[in-house]
């Protein structure tokens, strides 16, 4: 296995940890944390797409011409993507937390195995 694969594998491991949290944990808050971990795993994965050894931040300054910029900078597209993904993740998490508060109010517990009025 080439050495460059290691970071990608680690993001996959992170994804699996998140999925484990969602599937196994019984506490609503822990499930939400699981979802957040999966989101971070995908953010890490995307940011790795733009990585290059010794690259600079993709910000153009006045003392830099286009050629050196293109030559040196890391890929800015994944960074734009994860910024969007973070915003979307923020919306999802806010909604999840709001629902968790409401659920706690209705059921008086965070335990998912006791929140079971719907069958199947």
């Amino acid at each position: 296995m080439p050495k460059e694969m290691l970071p990608y594998l680690l993001t996959m491991v992170l994804l699996m940890i998140g999925v484990y949290g969602i599937v196994v944990k019984r506490n609503i808050i822990k499930i939400i944390v699981g979802v957040i971990i999966t989101e971070y795993a995908v953010n890490c994965f995307l940011i790795l797409q733009g990585y290059r050894d010794g690259g600079i931040a993709p910000i153009m300054t006045a003392d830099m011409n286009t050629a050196t910029f293109v030559d040196k900078s890391v890929d800015p597209v994944p960074q734009a993507l994860i910024l969007t993904a973070i915003v979307i993740g923020l919306g999802t998490v806010a909604l999840m937390v709001a629902l968790a508060i409401r659920l706690y109010e209705k059921y008086g517990t965070f335990d998912i195995s006791e929140i079971r009025r719907l069958q199947g």
């Binding site: 806010a94 937390v97 709001a98 508060i101 409401r102 109010e105």
Partner: peptide, 13 residues
């Protein structure tokens, strides 16, 4: 707004 919504809901109770 999200912060207020989450906090005020708690305070109301």
């Amino acid at each position: 707004g999200v912060f207020i919504a989450l906090v005020l809901f708690r305070m109301a109770r």
